[in-house]
Design a protein around this nucleic acid. Structure first.
Lengths: 164, 164
DNA sequence: TCAATATAATCAGACGTCTGTCGATTAGCC
DNA sequence: GGCTAATCGACAGACGTCTGATTATATTGA
């Protein structure tokens, strides 16, 4: 029970470990790990699921729209998309009216995977929130939402949320 | 003032954008961006600053200890450390008593950079917290702390905090 | 003493992320 | 029609992160 700071036991993290940036980084590390763990058997990452999700909701979208909706960088989106295409989870069809664009759409396999992933992703949420009381979880999400929204326009890739 | 969901305007993010994992990812993206922005002229990342900070506090440490204290992966730590060594901000000396180990220590340049970075890193904190009231910021940090501590032992790299 | 185990560090491979740049294409303007 | 600006998407380069494998070294125990 090493509890005595008597012995001048320094905490090397003091002054760093309580900074928001540090804690957010750690929280991100944790939530990524939990996601990977829960969805291991589907071999899917949170980022990839985001794309499947958004395509499932929107029907079809081009790369840039996906990036804007999810807050991904264009390059990141390009990589994720080509990875999903390689796995035949989405198709990438040239857009007739604008040949710069490719219209993305879920394949049957993509739909299936997305559907099978949903309960697992729900488990991720449950696990992440399980350390809080219901009230705390609500506050946590509210503050995170306030935080991200407040910085939205200052980021390179602001989210396009219809809610405003 | 597009406010009517009358027109069946779907929010493609609904059901995803309010998940803790999604928000945490976004928050991480933001805090990273702010850090980079503030510390651009020192050409230093949050991760790199963490190593400088911890070495400044501890005097000398080996790579694994740094990883454990900061919650980095061993490989990550190795890469960051070699990068800092290349910039002559730290030295890496073989440990006599245990030849597996390399003892890391800040160079003069490393000390200087760390000192010059401190006010900038403080500005990062201030900016990140500025979107909250003082009370909210406190709660936010408390909940983040609870979150990260609760999952600490389940992560691959649990933080070694003397405070327990 | 020798074998088994544990630890430190490196390396390879993968993914996510960002920056910056470039070419292709479209759209706007004269 | 033709120049120009804007946009899309590709690519290269960099960093952080994780996993898994490997090597070198210590420690422990039979």
């Amino acid at each position: 029970m090493r509890k005595k700071p008597r012995t001048r036991e320094i905490d090397p993290l003091q002054g760093l470990g309580d900074r928001p940036g540090f804690l957010i980084r750690r929280a991100h590390q944790i939530s990524q790990a939990v996601f990977i763990e829960e969805c291991a058997r589907l071999d899917i990452t949170a980022t990839q699921f985001g794309v499947l999700w958004i395509l499932s909701r929107a029907g079809e979208l081009d790369q840039i729209s996906i990036a804007r909706l999810l807050g991904f960088d264009r390059s990141t989106t390009g990589l994720v998309v080509s990875l999903l295409e390689k796995r035949a989870l989405i198709t990438r069809l040239p857009n007739k009216s604008d040949r710069r664009r490719h219209v993305l759409r879920l394949t049957k396999a993509g739909e299936d995977l997305k559907r099978r992933a949903e309960p697992l992703v729900d488990r991720v949420r449950v696990r992440l929130e399980s350390v809080f009381t219901r009230r705390e979880a609500k506050i946590f999400l509210r503050l995170l939402d306030k935080f991200t929204r407040s910085f939205d326009e200052t980021t390179r890739v602001p989210l396009r949320r219809p809610k405003g």
